[in-house]
């Protein structure tokens, strides 16, 4: 198994921490992982993205220019990364704020109403775990039990009481994801 993922959206949406929890979950499942952020003069409201690779074997380059899965959380990121999904790969996006939806015909496309579902749960911060759930439903590359362990490792202990809420959000994402196009 090798999964090369780009997660891209606005700063403040939890893009980097989603990637970190995913990577930690991979470690809990004995996988090799890399997490490479775009870093720079970026801030809340600007764009943020992170490349996460999970693999059963050693990972060569942490820098790649085509992806098995793109998780897209705003229009700018869709414009930038849709073309970099491998043919036959997967694009998962939140339609909130998307004016020009994806147009590729050679990739699998899924939607997750992450913003709306987080609103229903009454907690905007849980948004990224809803997205995580949607991704894991499509690509069950790590088991939920290892995601829980990953959360325990990446969240400071004083917030461990919030782990059940995070798991709930993941399960909500799993059930709310919609298939748009399958190739």
């Amino acid at each position: 198994m090798k999964e090369e993922i780009i997660i891209a959206g606005f700063g403040g949406q939890g893009v980097l921490s989603l990637g970190k929890i995913l990577a930690y979950s991979g470690i809990m499942q004995d996988q090799e992982v890399t997490w490479m952020p775009s870093y720079g003069p970026e801030m809340r409201g600007g764009t943020a993205n992170v490349t996460v690779i999970l693999s059963d074997d050693q990972i060569s380059s942490p820098i790649i220019n085509s992806y098995d899965t793109a998780i897209i959380l705003n229009q700018q990121s869709l414009d930038k990364f849709e073309k970099h999904v491998k043919p036959g790969g997967t694009l998962l996006y939140d339609p909130n704020g998307i004016i020009n939806p994806p147009t590729r015909k050679d990739i699998n496309i899924f939607q997750i109403e992450g913003t709306e579902e987080a609103g229903k749960m009454g907690n905007a911060k849980i948004f990224n775990m809803i997205i995580m759930g949607a991704f894991l439903k499509i690509k069950p590359i790590v088991q939920l039990e290892n995601v829980k362990k990953g959360l325990e490792k990446s969240i400071p202990e004083r917030y461990h009481n919030l782990i059940p809420l995070n798991i709930e959000a993941i399960q909500r994402g799993m059930s709310a994801v919609k298939e748009v196009q399958k190739v």
Binding site: V33, W35, M36, P37, P62, I63
Partner: peptide, 10 residues
Amino acid sequence: DGIIGQMMEK
């Protein structure tokens, strides 16, 4: 360099 410094790995 900035890649190895900023990247996370196991």
